[in-house]
Design a protein around this nucleic acid. Structure first.
Lengths: 249, 249
DNA sequence: CGACACTTTGAAGACGATCAACGCCGGTGG
DNA sequence: CCACCGGCGTTGATCGTCTTCAAAGTGTCG
């Protein structure tokens, strides 16, 4: 099972730096391999490192005191882990566990490394920008949890998934187990299973683990509900959810 | 109705700078008064300014395309508006409207001002830290939406409210209308009303607009569920929700 | 006093969670 | 090679919770 080394010189984190600078900074990272099911760190452990996922996928998950489990995020190639924990300057322990969903390779940096490169104005702006975008995504997610039913949320998730992974909207295979996706969406596997069928009425077809968007559900044709009728911004179209509207079944 | 000028030299944003530097930076801000019900900006308008709320409270709200309204946040004295929108570097228009919940005073800065001071490493770290904390809060909120029932979420919200406003836990008056709080929590006013009564079993008493925490519900005595039994971090205790656990009524 | 916004209460309905059972598949061990 | 097992996914039935619609109560302000 070969893994493709993620081209680290494309890290948004280091955008705008010279190639030599990038190389110098990256060189201090240690490549580590985590087989499927192994933990990068556990909830409650001190925050010691910053990570860049080079291949595979890590699940950020926490078990709550009353027995439930919530998947906060699924981190894929090119994304980072630990930014907020390190920069927050308040908590020094992880609030979630990180677990390899599949065999994964990550680059590991000391926490101090991130703090030091954040002193560089260019890097600082890069991080600020990425945190701001993440906040925007979270705000949408909260909004959706309040205003959308499960079918709409799932549809949006699948659209984002398709864009994020560069899948073919006409037909692609789910990259994760259905249980994991359900956990990410905060719903039960049973509900997930049932909801998949409802998506046909939105123009999203399901066959086994294969998803296909009909033209009517294609991302390119959707109007971004958050730009409303003001304009259709392409970035938003790609990332934002909220593309599906309630149907009177 | 007098307003207390917020002591701007305590802004977390400018922490670590010299007093002269702070004064110089703040001096470029323009003080603006917004009467209750007036808008600071509307959803869809271009992002032109950064704001610091000096007194009063601003509601960040968006109407979704299918007619629902969601209150993203309620911004009070000392908090800022526009950080993420300006730093995101992608969208140039507001995703929410900002509306004065009560007569408010804000300090207004050009968007470019924020970008320029973010070049200062000290300021950049301050912003990074505050964004990281905000992200942490949002992550908890998402988790709670999936794992807690309305009563628990409301209880947590009231505890945070009490800490944030420095209210007396033994008895304080709600600073906002019940409809606004319901909107902030993403529930209907009817549900809010009904849920308030359920809180008595958690040791939270309600009489009209007055809330009182019984000893058993006092924040100081709660164990932070996110530090689990690992340790009880005081910061977390103050800010975090998740303090109430499911009761078998 | 009356208009109006806000809040509360009641009853019906929609939706997701839960519990239980079954089918499917890959792996293990005899 | 086959039987067994465990993980995963589906399906059905039931239950609790929140929304929705409707109506009545409460308060404030002109």
């Amino acid at each position: 099972m070969p893994y493709t080394t993620y081209s680290l010189d494309k890290l948004p984190l280091l955008a705008g730096l010279k190639d030599e600078e990038k190389k110098a900074l990256i060189s201090s990272g240690i490549e580590r391999h985590y087989p499927k099911g192994s933990y990068l760190f556990h909830c409650g452990e001190p925050v010691t490192h910053f990570y860049v996922v080079c291949s595979g996928a890590m699940q950020l998950v926490r078990g709550t005191t009353d027995g439930k489990e919530v998947t906060q995020d699924i981190v894929i190639q090119g994304k980072t882990i630990g930014k907020t924990e390190i920069l927050q300057q308040v908590h020094k322990i992880h609030m979630v566990s990180a677990l390899a969903v599949e065999d994964s390779v990550v680059l590991e940096f000391p926490a101090a490394w991130l703090k030091s490169i954040a002193q560089n104005p260019t890097v600082a702006l890069n991080i600020l920008s990425s945190l701001s975008q993440y906040i925007h995504m979270m705000e949408l997610e909260v909004e959706h949890k309040s205003t959308m039913d499960t079918a709409q949320q799932l549809g949006c998730f699948l659209q984002r998934l398709c864009v994020l992974h560069n899948f073919d909207p006409k037909g692609f295979t789910l990259p994760y187990s259905k249980s994991l996706i359900a956990s990410r969406l905060g719903i039960e596997p049973e509900t997930f299973s049932r909801t998949l069928k409802k998506l046909k009425s939105y123009g999203i077809g399901i066959k086994g683990n294969t998803i296909s968007f009909a033209d009517s559900a294609l991302i390119e044709q959707s109007v971004c509900s958050h730009c409303s009728s003001l304009e259709t911004c392409s970035t938003h179209k790609a990332v934002v959810t909220g593309l599906l509207h309630k149907k009177s079944s």
